[in-house]
Design a protein around this nucleic acid. Structure first.
Length: 817
DNA sequence: GCAAGGTC
């Protein structure tokens, strides 16, 4: 009997391997917090122990721990040592390897996996001649049996490549982090981090910010028309016209024309490809779209994975391995909320899945491994599970088919174009349509020479818009494209940018210190802000793997370069530090205190941040920060009271400059809506929840608990009137004037009346016919929508302009079968 | 109190 020890990267792999190799007859034993599995095959006795990723960590020896005691320059060539992070696991491995005849590294089949295995067996001090490697790309029977039937030698070069990355990252990261933090006087928990991945990622946000700040909007015009019975939309073939005279001329020529002639008409069938299977990046991007940011998505996916509901969530693979039974997956989904869909797809004679461009050896794409119901899994976890299931269903469904048509219309010698799009067969969209924006536009069948009524022509002015900022989803996608970070680390890197106060907001805005740091590193950081540093490291790692270069040579080259950079920064540290200090000050400084003349800055407290005077405790002046909003400092002062103004950025409304004093008349004029109808003492004012949601509530709270929900979008302007019916304040939002009480009896009555009127006559009462009585509001809303079709058209075309330049629809890169 | 990479 031979004794064999198998080492895996994670617990699930240990369980699967033991089950497969033992035909389900393995035993597990737990001791000291480490689980090991044992089984016997008749010829061999096996032990299986799982690691938890890297159980070793690279760091400097303790004596380098004091940032001020060692010059960062001397850190460049300081020794780096590996310490054990999870001692219990290593002890178990030492114990079991003592009488093992063979030790099999069965970690993930990739660069880091090779290192995770090698550093462990080396730390355990095992006889390296006994060490073998099992290579598999999925935890399936076929793959595992094949890997263990064909063990190979461990690949020292592959492990060395990963080791080079570790050393280089720690050297650059620690040295530059210390240099910058020390020069800026930011030590302790306020240190400023620098790294090969985080610094280029931050620069993406800084560059975007700069682009937006430097953006000069340009006016352009679009000549839009409505045609025929269907009133379908068409646009002059020139599209965006930047010369007003040209637009005016076309408009003048066409505006009163009553009839157009079809000059060309084409109709065809378009096949719409299924999306590729989920890899981690696409899963994060799609989850972000339904309100689950990457970090949350990874946490939930981890839960679903350990719960047995989905396959391994960290993968770069977009092609299902042949060993995976797609029918089997569908069968399992019959026992879920998606049983109907699964049964339907099982009826297909042949199931051929979509596939993406990326194929890797690490793990299969993300797919559901068990059925579940929304009664069993709740909240966001269910939302993510449903997304993964629907994505899977889409990848094994047929392509969708659409009928597309294009017509050219001649209007007084000018050509207008209209596109038709009608979904003919939903195909995969039947399962994934929930996450797509449907945009059917019908145009009638026509032939050349047909006459079409011109319902109206408009000359719409718009302005070009700056590019969109990144959100977490689009940033992850860009990091992926630039190969910054890995599938497992990208969300964490973004988290770092937040926790270091380098960025803020849902749409990621760099802070003053984030910008200053990036500028300093761009000038003095030796390329640390460039994705090229990662690209070069990748090339160097490949050369180690290929045997062209040694680990030592790559590390030496990198550290020699770092030494030059460090010496330079060290010599200019005062100037560099001053730049960052100025930015940090700007980020914190909120004007001078009118009581004592000291400066006021943002203060942290356990009840949230606030604005406080630096003369504390002698001076107690303090102001609250707006709740649930993003706040930026400005140089401007309140025209009413002279205190500082801050820029408040909230969802759904344009950014606003406001006085830091909530009691200042400049604020109360905007926020006080009118007397409280309930207690007759307080004032109903606009308030914000911690999450940033706005509502109206009585100033006498908690004595009076009167609140009203408010519309989430649009600027609310008080008009100083009360509703004649319920007494609640009346406000103006855009062109709508209404009582804020959603339950106002008059509102309900009017709504009913408006619906009946519309139904009976098809004519919507116009705004002009409505009197000024409050509660007439719903009528106004309806008619307003009708009237503002021109405005809506403007908006769509403007956003089209922007999206054309900056964004691609996520699904356009469908599969390549 | 440093990085980035694994995994929980």
């Amino acid at each position: 009997m031979m004794k064999k020890l198998i080492i895996t990267e994670k617990a699930n792999a240990a369980r699967r391997i033991a089950t497969i190799l033992s035909d389900g007859k393995s035993h597990s034993a737990s001791a000291g917090g480490v689980t090991s599995l044992t089984f016997s095959t008749g010829t061999d006795d096996y032990n299986v122990v799982s690691l938890r990723g890297h159980i070793m960590e690279l760091d400097y020896p303790e004596e380098y721990g004091d940032w001020r005691a060692t010059s960062p320059v001397d850190l460049v060539n300081a020794p780096q040592i590996k310490t054990v992070r999870v001692k219990s696991i290593l002890s178990k491995i030492i114990e079991l390897s003592r009488d093992a005849d063979e030790i099999i590294i069965a970690t993930d089949y990739d660069r880091e996996g090779e290192l995770i295995g090698m550093e462990t067996v080396k730390a355990a001090g095992v006889d390296m001649t006994k060490v073998k490697r099992a290579k598999f790309s999925a935890l399936t029977k076929g793959e595992i049996e094949n890997a263990f039937g064909n063990l190979v030698e461990p690949d020292e070069r592959l492990a060395n490549a990963a080791e080079a990355r570790q050393v280089v990252d720690l050297s650059w990261g620690a040295v530059l982090t210390r240099l910058i933090s020390l020069s800026a006087g930011q030590v302790g928990k306020n240190f400023m981090s620098v790294g090969r991945v985080q610094s280029p990622t931050l620069k993406l946000l800084v560059d975007k910010n700069e682009e937006i700040e430097n953006f000069v909007p340009q006016s352009y015009w679009e000549i839009n028309g409505r045609f025929g019975m269907l009133a379908f939309k068409g646009q002059h073939e020139k599209g965006q016209i930047f010369d007003k005279d040209v637009a005016d001329e076309i408009f003048g020529k066409t505006k009163d024309v009553k009839e157009a002639t079809v000059s060309s008409y084409e109709k065809g069938i378009k096949e719409e490809y299924r999306p590729p299977p989920f890899d981690t990046t696409m899963m994060q991007v799609e989850a972000n779209k339904i309100g689950i940011p990457p970090s949350a998505a990874m946490k939930l996916a981890e839960d679903l994975y350990t719960g047995g509901y989905i396959s391994y969530p960290r993968t770069e693979n977009t092609e299902y391995p042949r060993s995976l039974s797609l029918r089997g997956v569908l069968e399992r989904l019959k026992d879920s909320d998606f049983s109907e869909e699964a049964s339907e797809l099982l009826k297909q004679e042949k199931i051929s899945p979509s596939r993406g461009k990326r194929r890797t050896t690490d793990h299969p794409p993300i797919y559901p491994t068990a059925g579940a119901t929304s009664a069993k899994i709740k909240g966001d976890k269910w939302k993510l599970y449903e997304l993964i299931v629907r994505r899977f269903l889409a990848t094994v469904a047929p392509n969708a088919v659409a009928e597309v048509s294009e017509v050219k219309l001649d209007v007084a010698g000018e050509t207008f174009k209209a596109d038709g799009y009608v979904q003919k067969e939903k195909g995969w969209k039947k399962y994934y349509g929930k996450y797509l924006r449907a945009a059917e536009s019908r145009i009638p069948d026509m032939k050349v020479g047909d006459k079409v009524d011109v319902r109206g022509i408009t000359n719409d002015e718009s302005q070009t818009k700056p590019p969109y900022r990144y959100n977490q989803g689009s940033l992850i996608q860009e990091m992926d494209r630039l190969q910054l970070g890995t599938k497992s680390t990208r969300h964490d890197i973004i988290g770092k940018l937040f926790s270091r106060n380098y960025v803020q907001g849902n749409y990621l805005i760099p802070t003053a210190s984030g910008i200053a740091l990036t500028k300093a590193l761009e000038h003095h950081g030796g390329g640390i802000t460039e994705p090229e540093m990662t690209a070069k490291l990748e090339r160097d790692m490949l050369s180690i793997t290929d045997g062209e270069r040694s680990l030592e040579s790559v590390v030496k080259e990198s550290q020699d370069m770092l030494r030059d950079v460090a010496v330079k920064i060290d010599s200019e540290s005062v100037a560099i530090g001053d730049e960052i200090k100025a930015a940090l000050k700007k980020q914190q400084f909120v004007g001078m205190c009118p009581s004592c003349g000291n400066s006021m800055t943002i203060k942290k407290s356990k009840n949230g941040n606030f604005i406080g005077c630096n003369g504390y405790p002698e001076c107690n002046r303090a102001y609250p920060l707006p709740k649930g909003a993003l706040v930026q400092m400005t140089d401007s002062v309140c025209p009413v009271c002279g205190l500082a103004q801050i820029k408040v950025i909230r969802k759904g409304v344009p950014p606003s400059l406001q006085c830091i004093d909530p009691k200042c008349k400049s604020n109360t004029d905007k926020n006080d809506l009118g007397p409280c109808p309930t207690c007759k003492k307080g004032t109903i004012r606009i308030m914000y929840s911690k999450a940033g949601r706005r509502f109206a509530g009585c100033s006498e709270w908690p004595a009076c608990t009167q609140t009203y929900p408010l519309r989430p979008r649009g600027t609310i302007v008080p008009v100083g009137e009360s509703c004649t019916e319920c007494g609640a304040p009346v406000v103006q939002i855009g062109s709508i004037k209404e009582c804020i009480n959603m339950d106002c009896p008059l509102r309900k009555k009017r709504k009913q009346t408006a619906e009946t009127e519309t139904e009976n006559t098809g004519i919507v009462p116009s705004a002009a016919s409505s009197d000024d009585r409050v509660g007439r509001v719903v009528t106004v809303v309806v008619s307003d929508r009708k009237r503002s079709s021109k405005k809506t058209a403007k908006k769509t075309s403007a956003s089209k302009t922007r999206s054309k330049k900056t964004e691609k629809p996520a699904l356009e890169t469908a599969d390549n079968e």
